[in-house]
């Protein structure tokens, strides 16, 4: 036991400069995945509640395909499929794949949250003479956003961990580094423990920030 602790510590000390660099890449992947996913999610959520059969159809196809196929397949598809048409770095291929993947889940989070707002809110707003757009922007969406924050936070944590899958197309994020380290040093067990710790700490920081933000929102409004 102490021996294992010692070798893990030794691997950690030897690899941390590389890991810190790779952590930046992981965070960048996560950030792009989250921001792009949120934008895509919002657009598709609005399409789903638009009342237009065509827009709803498009959104449904997108959500069905993305939720029905594994992320790793989507990453490969984007990497090999898009690169045929448009040259981009493997970082961007991976980040966009994460964003597109996230978008489907976030669309459902937003849709649920928007539809979960009390219909009385919409009625009150309309009765005051606000039109559909004003009602959505000023009354319904701000309330929906507040409700979306816990599930969005959860989705962001999933994105952070899912970003490990882009190692398959050779992006130098922390999992790919751990993988390489494991092969080169013949210490696979220790290497993966170290990378697990990196993820764990990142997720804990993320969770803490989210909780802080949720509390702050509550304090404001009660």
């Amino acid at each position: 036991m102490f021996e294992l602790f010692g070798t893990v510590f030794e691997v950690f000390m030897r690899t941390y400069p590389g890991f810190l660099e790779a952590t930046v890449v992981t965070l960048q992947l996560t950030a792009v995945g989250v921001i792009l996913g949120t934008v895509i999610g919002l657009v598709f959520a609005l399409m789903k509640i638009s009342g237009s059969k065509i827009l709803q159809g498009i959104a449904n196809v997108y959500i069905t395909i993305i939720r029905g196929t594994p992320l790793i397949v989507q990453i490969m598809f984007l990497y090999f499929g898009i690169v045929e048409i448009y040259t981009m770095s493997n970082f961007w291929a991976g980040a966009i794949a994460l964003g597109v993947h996230n978008g489907a889940y976030i669309a459902e989070i937003f849709r649920g949250a928007i539809q979960g707002v009390d219909p009385g809110q919409r009625e009150a707003s309309m009765s005051l003479g606000m039109n559909r757009k004003q009602t959505m922007q000023r009354i319904v969406f701000p309330q929906a956003l507040r409700r979306s924050i816990p599930p969005l936070g959860n989705q962001f944590i999933i994105t952070l961990k899912d970003s490990s899958l882009v190692y398959i197309i050779g992006v130098a994020e922390i999992f790919s580094l751990a993988n390489r380290e494991a092969a080169q040093s013949f210490q696979p067990f220790e290497s993966f423990i170290v990378v697990a710790l990196y993820y764990l700490v990142l997720v804990m920081i993320f969770t803490y920030l989210l909780r802080w933000y949720e509390n702050r929102l509550d304090v404001d409004k009660t």
Partner: peptide
């Protein structure tokens, strides 16, 4: 103007 049974004030 309309006043509702459940007020429907904007909570945010």
């Amino acid at each position: 103007g309309m006043v509702f049974q459940h007020f429907n004030l904007f909570p945010h």
